[in-house]
């Protein structure tokens, strides 16, 4: 018993003697350069600062002053570099950390991002917040027709959008398209469709065919959501097609299948779970988007929200928003259930 214990201790002792390889030390010179960059950024922040707040540093015989926020920024940057150096993060990692802080400082100061404003505007916030926290429950049921329109819009746009998106995705992916030219052209079309946001499409269609004022709100809404869905489904699905297992595709080719048959028999079954899950995803997006689209004049629950906001009836808006949260949660749970059954 004792001998084995002895052996164990001796074993561990000999093991402790063997040297462990150390993480390579990052180059101190490069880190010094990074610190130089931090100082440079500090000077730029100093020169371009908007805030006049000043930090006074009394040293006894003389009092130094410095601009408050750039100094805080510099301190954070140098501290980060120090931590990175001590943790032996590589020089690229140190540079990344520095860049992250510099960029967020720069971007935040450009838009004057600060939370300090909120308390000073509390008198403005409070009555509205109070109305929001006391929703008019009885109002929820009175907008049921708008809900029906919203959901119908989402269903139609999702079904048609997914069908068109499937065809465009098949044409866009080099794996399933007839040739490179078609694939590139369809990809370009897809990028254009996707570059216009859903609200942009809604504004366009409201302008072209008329909105709620002409009784065509849902029509414009469906078209806007449709374009929005085509863009998303075509993009996500064509990327899924890019990464299908090429084996069955080759087998279909070797059996003499034509392009359509090959895509239907070898590619579609492989991407079907993804396709259905993208369809459920855009359905969710459609429900959510219809709340925003009402503002630009397409039908659905968004127009009800807009109407109540214009009347400063925040308790009614709150009721609709709570119903929106519930509906989105229900749709989310439903799609999670389907996805689980499917995958």
């Amino acid at each position: 018993m004792t001998t084995t214990a002895d052996e164990a201790t001796r074993g561990s002792a000999t093991r402790a003697v063997t040297a462990r390889p150390e993480a390579p030390k990052p180059s101190g010179l490069v880190y010094l350069g990074l610190a130089g960059l931090a100082v440079l950024a500090f000077i730029i922040f100093w020169v371009t600062r908007d805030s006049g707040e000043i930090l006074l540093i009394p040293l006894g015989f003389v009092t130094l002053w410095a601009p408050l926020y750039p100094v805080i920024g510099l301190a954070v940057m140098l501290l980060t570099l120090l931590v990175c150096y001590r943790a032996r993060v590589g020089t690229m990692g140190g540079f990344g950390a520095l860049a992250f802080i510099t960029m967020s400082y720069w971007a935040g100061s450009t838009v004057n991002f600060t939370l300090l404003e909120i308390p000073s505007r509390w008198s403005n916030v409070e009555p509205r917040l109070r109305a929001f926290l006391d929703p008019n429950w009885s109002y929820i049921w009175t907008v049921r027709d708008q809900w029906l329109i919203t959901i119908s819009m989402a269903v139609v746009a999702t079904l048609i959008g997914c069908a068109i998106g499937l065809v465009l995705a098949m044409l866009a992916s080099p794996v399933s398209s007839p040739n490179k030219g078609v694939s590139q052209a369809i990809k370009a079309v897809n990028s254009v469709i996707r570059s216009i946001p859903d609200v942009g499409w809604a504004l366009l269609f409201v302008a072209f065919i008329g909105g709620t004022a002409h009784g065509l709100g849902p029509m414009a809404g469906v078209l806007a959501l449709l374009m929005f869905n085509i863009g998303i489904v075509a993009k996500l699905l064509s990327e899924t097609i890019d990464s299908v297992n090429p084996g069955p595709v080759e087998a279909a080719d070797a059996a003499g299948a034509n392009l359509t048959q090959r895509n239907r028999l070898a590619i579609l079954p492989q991407v079907l779970p993804g396709f259905v899950s993208y369809g459920l995803y855009v359905f969710e997006l459609n429900i959510r988007a219809s709340a925003a689209l009402g503002i630009v004049g397409v039908g659905g629950i968004g127009s009800a929200i807009m109407l109540q906001l214009n009347r400063f009836a925040f308790e009614n808006v709150a009721a609709i928003l709570i119903a929106l949260i519930v509906v989105v949660l229900l749709v989310d749970m439903f799609s999670m259930y389907i996805r689980r059954k499917l995958l």
């Binding site: 059996a255 003499g256 299948a257 359509t260 048959q261 090959r262 239907r264 028999l265 070898a266």
Partner: peptide
């Protein structure tokens, strides 16, 4: 899939 060459495309679809 082996019957593809002899099957009309619409049937495959």
């Amino acid at each position: 899939v082996g019957r593809s060459a002899e099957t009309p495309t619409w049937r495959s679809l």
